[in-house]
């Protein structure tokens, strides 16, 4: 009797979910997501009230303020699952058990990523939209494309970091080392982003920001909605205010980078990784 094709994939997925989200990891992270989502909106509440000119910019600022800390918590969960979890699988040899399944390597990686990223992402987005509908149902319903664009722009960077971390984990094959390198990479890019923003503010040259917007497309959207001036006289140098379509181009560019990084990871896992 022929075995159903989906079964090994589901077995690996179930095993990965069991490993990544042991009780009470899922519950603790759900609690942290929910509480940080609301608390951050409160802190930004006065700010939103004073700067939001139109309901469209209110929708954007609501999403961007609400997303701040939960996005960082999402990254921590991804770091744990991808860098530490997958790295440990390679280090301890657990991955060999998975490779024994009658399934192609790229499907094994897909099951692992679905568990590590898919569930974390579903939980993150689920709580975010739930909170948005609790706080401002009308604003969210009226400006759904803006809300979705804001999430797409903000998630591109964490997904890129995850793909790079996955590659690092496969290369070093050690959970702890991969985690440390992932954290170093995250802070290095954060510092680079700060330096590029300061460069723009001090020189009035928008090129550093445009480079940053490819890696972090949320920058383009942020500058589209909130005009951040330079220290140079406003009369001489114009501030960078990308149009909405320009911001969308940066988002598309960002996801091309993400897709490329994942493709390299899949190729490496399928063809180059010797286990």
């Amino acid at each position: 009797m022929e075995k159903p094709k989906g079964k090994p994939f589901l077995e690996i997925l179930a095993a990965s979910i069991h490993e990544d989200f042991r009780f009470p990891i899922l519950e603790v992270f759900a609690f942290l997501y929910a509480i940080s989502t609301f608390v951050l909106v409160q802190i930004g509440g006065g700010y939103t009230l004073s700067i939001a000119g139109s309901e469209e910019s209110l929708a954007y600022s609501l999403v961007s303020i609400q997303m701040g800390t939960p996005l960082f918590i999402f990254l921590i969960l991804i770091f744990k699952n991808v860098a530490y979890g997958f790295g440990s699988d390679l280090e301890k040899g657990t991955i060999q058990t998975l490779l024994a399944y009658p399934i192609k390597r790229h499907m094994i990686l897909t099951a692992k990523m679905l568990s590590a990223i898919g569930i974390s992402l579903a939980m993150f987005l689920g709580i975010q939209f739930f909170a948005l509908y609790l706080i401002a149902p009308q604003t969210v319903a009226n400006h759904m494309p803006i809300v979705i664009t804001a999430y797409l722009a903000s998630l591109s960077y964490p997904l890129l970091i995850t793909a790079i971390m996955l590659l690092i984990a496969m290369k070093v094959r050690k959970g702890g080392t991969a985690l440390v390198l992932g954290i170093v990479l995250y802070f290095a890019i954060s510092m680079a982003s700060g330096i590029l923003t300061i460069l723009y503010i001090f020189t009035g040259n928008a090129t550093p920001l445009k480079i940053l917007a490819i890696i972090q497309p949320s920058t383009a959207l942020q500058f589209h909605y909130t005009q951040i001036g330079t220290l140079i006289s406003q009369g001489q140098i114009e501030t960078w205010t990308p149009s909405f379509s320009e911001a969308l181009t940066y988002i598309a560019g960002g996801y091309c980078l993400v897709a490329a990084a994942y493709l390299i990871s899949y190729y490496y896992f399928s063809r180059r990784l010797n286990i």
Binding site: F21, P24, L26, V28, A30, A34, I127
Partner: peptide, 12 residues
């Protein structure tokens, strides 16, 4: 687990 997650959200 879904139920426990919902309870964690309710707690928050």
């Amino acid at each position: 687990r879904i139920g426990a997650t919902l309870l964690a959200i309710c707690l928050s």
